[in-house]
Design a binder for these strands. Structure first.
Lengths: 191, 191
DNA sequence: GTTGTTGTTGACCGATTGGTCCAGAAATGT
DNA sequence: ACATTTCTGGACCAATCGGTCAACAACAAC
């Protein structure tokens, strides 16, 4: 009969994701992963496959959870336009300097790893769809012009948000980052 | 008497920068650098110092040249507002998928390498100053409201531009990227 | 207690890593 | 031609890399 695993796979996955996030994929060694998880190589390989498979899994987990968060944000306000504003302001948080794990990984690896590029592409298409639906709702509520292309505007909002995220990554202080996010929100969304 | 170097240090620096840009810092080995430059280790170490020093030098060269390009763009139009639009559109180019070497490196390394973070911070402060001067000029020319904070607006423009740059990095196709850049330009700048 | 199955550890592997150092080569002045 | 100085290549180094695999442990059914 099977012996159950003696560790929480999801909890370990999150701990390992944090290491990939902070150090990057290439600068994270199996030694690091073993130390952080408390597991031996055999256990890591059995549970997650090789290093790259493990990394992709942490990335997918991050994207899945991120999209859940995005959905929650987009549904968090009575008026859709307020939710869109919240999306733009979302990079302003105490963890701003870490940036976005997906963005960090895409910047580091997109040229040499088609699978990472594919993950990013799919993730941003999904986010674009989610934001597009919210834009359409704001249009229906009369807060955004009904004649503009919802998807095109969604892409612009996403690009602006990713710019704010990156500014956070560069170490811009939080007050300044908030000002930038608010300024962009004021210019892109009605008040 | 001193024997002169038998290779062009600047040309080699550019070739090595391209490798760091495409593969990232950590995934680039001395073996790679030797193969690309055609030099032995002794020559690389003598000319550029260790791997990290070489990397920082490629980054600084990139920033210096980038700022020259930014200055040129900001002075390339009779009206300053048109130059600002050009800055927003600058990520739309055949090399869009490579993204920005500074951004890639910052995303990969900022958490673990304070010197890279410091380079990024300084670089973006310089870019912000350059764009602020251009915004002020556009205000003088009556194309932008005179009562808005030039530097704050410059930061927003830079954030938006960095967002477009990153969208390029994710592999968004060029026509779509151009649409996003144009849309943001239309919304942030008068036409 | 025994048996069967799965989990775990870490030795082992070949390869690669970043960096040092020295012998020989090349450039240049005398 | 010789002497001096710097450049160059690559041997050498200890350490680390990602991954495999076998011995032992643990779990569970009988």
């Amino acid at each position: 009969m099977a012996r159950p695993r003696s560790f929480d796979e999801d909890r370990v996955l999150h701990e390992l994701r944090d290491r990939f996030w902070d150090a990057g994929y290439s600068a994270t060694s199996l030694q690091d992963l073993m130390r952080i998880s408390g597991l031996g190589k055999g256990s890591l390989y059995a549970a997650y496959g090789d290093k790259h498979s493990l990394f992709l899994r942490t990335l997918r987990t991050y994207v899945t959870e991120g999209n859940e968060g995005l959905r929650a944000t987009l549904e968090s306000e009575p008026r859709a336009v307020d939710a869109l504003r919240k999306v733009l302001l979302s990079p302003v948080n105490p963890g701003a300097e870490r940036g976005c794990f997906l963005a960090n990984s895409t910047c580091e690896l997109a040229t040499q790893h088609a699978d990472v590029r594919a993950e990013a592409r799919q993730a941003y298409e999904t986010m674009t769809e989610l934001i597009t639906a919210c834009v359409a709702k704001a249009q229906q509520e009369g807060d955004l012009p009904a004649d503009q292309d919802a998807k095109e505007f969604a892409r612009s909002l996403l690009a602006a948000q990713q710019g704010v995220l990156y500014m956070g990554r560069t170490g811009m202080d939080l007050d300044m980052l908030r000002s930038v996010a608010n300024d962009l929100a004021d210019r892109l969304l009605p008040r």
